[in-house]
Design a protein around this nucleic acid. Sequence first.
DNA 1: CGCGATGATTGCCG
DNA 2: CGGCAATCATCGCG
Length: 374
Amino acid sequence: MDEQPRLMHSHGVGMAGHPGLAQHMQDGTAGTDGEGRKQDIGDILQQIMTITDQSLDEAQARKHALNCHRMKPALFNVLCEIKEKTVLSIRGAQEEEPPDPQLMRLDNMLLAEGVAGPEKGGGSAAAAAAAAATGGVGADNSAEHSDYRAKLSQIRQIYHTELEKYEQACNEFTTHVMNLLREQSRTRPISPKEIERMVSIIHRKFSSIQMQLKQSTCEAVMILRSRFLDARRKRRNFNKQATEILNEYFYSHLSNPYPSEEAKEELAKKCGITVSQVTKKPIHLHCQVQVSNWFGNKRIRYKKNIGKFQEEANMYAARTAVNATSVSAHGSQANSPSTPNSAGEIWTLDYFDFLSFNPRLTCTVILSEDRSLW
DNA sequence: CGCGATGATTGCCG
DNA sequence: CGGCAATCATCGCG
């Protein structure tokens, strides 16, 4: 290594250019006769003709010599510094980026759908949950669900292989570029920092590609969802037993048909309404929601047209009354109002407002109960 | 096929 | 956040 400083001269590429050429020039100037000159010119021409043959080696040699120059590291550092000041300072501002909210949204969704996350764990856990939930009532829709799950796992697989492919490509490309830059950094000023920046640019580029993948995967899942699980498309009526139970509760709590969370859960369990009905959100605890839906619909529809439900009401009231008398002793008719509206109000509506709004119902209500109102 | 029944969704409100 | 009211979209019966 200590002989490097002399390399340039020993190779003869330093200042005079072509060594042989310089030699001959000197010889030429030394000679005085025209013959010698002609000879020299001929030599030069000859060498010029052959110079292209040597140029590659020549360049290599030159490069090598330059590399090994003792001032090279210092010069390189200075150049890097200058470059950094001029170039990097311009771009330096936009370096850091906050985590993209869109990307986070996509990630969350993929995770929630069981596409991302643990390869088998999330998927099979969700599948198991779905299967367990379906076990209650739906023999028919378990087939639907399995179809859905199959498609979903297909999507998941594609997603993962693509993701892996991208990651691999990213790594390969990064190392390639890094090698290239490292190689080039021997002849032109490239600081490690710059390489780092390049790498981060590459990563950003690839992650934007990944985001596209995530986007399209999300879309695919949404389409799958709307195809298979959109409740409105694939609505199933509750079976007869379930509606019986729900109606029973409704009419026996007619004065306050607002089941608590526990009651809803109880009802859902009793009816076998698990997630048998299709749902939109991640398959979770939708039994209560369904019960809530049912009660919401029932309340509103009952209130809208009590007359139409009168018969039904009487029927269930009679049934609960029979049950009450047959099962228990006589005194406990606390929560079995055999006729509706014994409290004088329909839940939220004041009684008199209600009457004035629905004159045709006055007969029903008044005749049925509560003479004290007269 | 038409129409009422019905479960689910959406927007609004307290 | 839960309930209400309106609305949607499918179901199921005649």
